[in-house]
Design a protein around this nucleic acid. Structure first.
Length: 515
RNA sequence: GCGCCUGUAGCUCAGUGGACAGAGCGGCGGACUUCUAAUCCGCGGGUCGGAGGUUCGAAUCCUCCCAGGCGCACCA
């Protein structure tokens, strides 16, 4: 919807033409019903109040002006004040030609002021394998990162872990116990992976981290950097000088309530509580570290159980003198494990966890990634511990991938035959619908990026697949290779394949040439 | 008690101010001498949790209520 986008697409130019005639911005929408035209605008309804005129009168004038445009084949009004437009085949050719000219970057580059962005995600302490719960964090965070990068931002992914806390101590003690052939201590960690680590020499943390990284790489998530709390902790003394702190009850507090916090926080515990820095102290060190490294924006991907810290990060930014707008906390609801219709409590000790590797072994990377991002982040996800239902071949991911396989088949058949976006025939409903769908992509991607909502992309990909499969299936009318319409239809197929491939890539799913 | 999220078709969910509310799955009935039937077509299915309000227009915005999930430590 930015100026740059509207002026460089056929749809944007048409909107600008209409806006000039209406005297107000015009947004063309695709009506739900075919009888309401290719595109429609409600601008007359919006103007009626200010102009003190009946909406249909304004609509009628605009429809008359629109009908005179070469791109417009027919313009009608409809109560209470819509203007409905039917566009000429030449306009479709122009629009499709522009889409193809944009190449692989079609739909990208929407960031008006590109930023250096860090997305911190997963960040599970390395006390065990990555679970399917953390995998949602990764699938979601990585897709957001892909969207931001496609928009033109410089994006890095970081994994943060606490290598020195009590959780890690319990983990190390559990491995030590296993090495002596003893059971894990109270509150320790059990499981086959502990035995695997016990068979190795030395600190079990590095091999555990390698295993985590392997799981995530297999899941197509690559981390540019790994941050350790122990390396950051040494910066605490210099940090304390810059903060408004005081002592009470033997502990060191920060006056965060003066920066919008609901209460002050302890940064260093009192001696009788161990005298160690708190998690909040680590938060402050880490945020400053991120921003000092030159990131314009620091994004935290956190499960909804951490929603309480959302305001805390803004408080930290203010305490350190940074613009809180540079810090962004994105929350997603949690993954619940079910068995049939029963919710089961996740518990490592009882073995009631599903690891990412198990999930991927069962359903494959593509179905797993799709399943973990195809609904809004504000909605919780159930994963059946027996995994039978996710194994289904009815998963929409295959429906979408099939578009890519079918278009690839067409090009195997067509070879290097010439293509031409300019249609030499009158376009039928399926052809028009497919072009219009593909033209939605730039705005859809822009919205998905701004809203941090990759599920809009999977939803859109299904819509593209609907339109494509409807076109493709009727071979009598829509034969591509060898038909009189071949040059145009090859152009349409190339555009379809490109949009589907990009949509799948944005959520980390492969686009196969054969299925 | 305070805060955040959710409540839409039998099930899982899209839909963040527009035209009679959509899709997938499940159910029933049809379509292959194919550029891949992992596809397509048809039929059934909904007081959009409830009540008010704002608006020409509300699933969408506001207020209250109900139900479910999660969070409110000198825990990590």
């Amino acid at each position: 919807m930015d100026v740059g986008e509207t002026t460089r697409t056929a749809l944007g130019r048409l909107e600008d033409e209409l806006a000039r005639r209406a005297g107000a911005p015009v947004l063309l929408e695709r009506p739900a019903k075919a009888e309401h035209g290719d595109y429609a605008t409600n601008v007359a309804l919006r103007l009626a109040g200010a102009q003190q005129r009946p909406p249909l009168e304004i609509a009628s004038e605009l429809a008359g002006a629109a009908a005179a445009l070469p791109a417009v084949e027919r313009a009608e009004t409809a109560p209470p004040g819509f203007v409905n437009l039917w566009l000429a085949p030449a306009w479709y050719g122009e629009a499709l030609g522009e889409l193809l000219a944009a190449g692989p970057g079609y739909g990208g580059g929407s960031a008006t002021a590109p930023e250096r962005v860090q997305v911190e995600m997963v960040s599970a302490n390395p006390t065990g394998p990555i679970t399917v719960a953390s995998a949602r964090n990764g699938a979601y965070g990585d897709s957001v990162a892909r969207l931001l990068a496609f928009a033109g931002n410089d994006v890095e992914r970081e994994y943060y872990y606490n290598d020195a806390g009590t959780q890690m101590e319990r983990f190390r003690v559990s491995v030590e116990a296993a090495r002596r052939g003893e059971p894990p201590p109270e509150d320790g960690y059990a499981g086959d992976y502990i035995q695997d680590l016990a068979a190795l020499e030395g600190d079990p943390v590095p091999p555990m981290l390698r295993r985590i990284e392997e799981s995530l790489e297999r899941f197509r998530i690559h981390f540019d950097s790994w941050a350790l709390q122990s390396e950051l902790a040494s910066h605490l003394p210099e940090l304390l000088d810059d903060l408004d702190t005081y002592e009470r009850d033997g502990a060191l507090w920060v006056r965060s309530s003066a920066y919008g916090d609901e209460k002050d926080r302890v940064l260093v515990r009192s001696p009788e509580r161990g005298g160690q820095p708190t998690y909040e102290a680590a938060d402050i060190i880490y945020l400053r570290n991120k921003l000092e490294r030159g990131f314009d924006r620091a994004i935290y991907i956190l499960g909804a159980d951490h929603h309480g810290v959302r305001g805390w990060y803004a408080v930290i930014a203010r305490m350190l003198g940074y613009d809180p707008e540079r810090v962004e906390v994105i929350l997603y609801q949690l993954v619940h494990l079910t068995r049939g219709s029963d919710v089961v409590k996740m518990s490592k000790r009882r073995g009631e966890v599903v690891t990412l590797d198990e999930f991927v072994d069962e359903v494959g990377v593509d179905a797993a990634r799709w399943h973990l991002v195809d609904r809004g982040p504000d909605r919780s996800i159930d994963v059946d511990v027996d995994l039978a239902q996710e194994r289904s071949r009815k998963n929409p991911v295959y429906y979408v991938q099939y578009v890519h396989a079918r278009t690839a088949g067409i090009f195997r058949e067509a070879g290097n035959a010439p293509m031409d976006a300019e249609p030499k025939h009158d376009l039928d409903t399926e052809e028009r619908n497919l072009v219009k769908r593909l033209l939605e992509f730039p705005r859809l991607v822009t919205e998905a990026t701004e809203r941090r909502a990759p599920h809009l992309v999977t939803d859109f990909a299904i819509r593209v697949a609907d339109d494509f499969h409807r076109f493709y299936h009727d071979r009598k009318r829509h034969q591509v290779v060898g038909s009189p319409q071949q040059p145009f239809r090859l152009a349409l197929m190339k555009a379809t394949r490109s949009v589907i491939a990009r949509s799948l890539d944005l959520v980390g799913v492969e686009a196969p040439d054969r299925m």
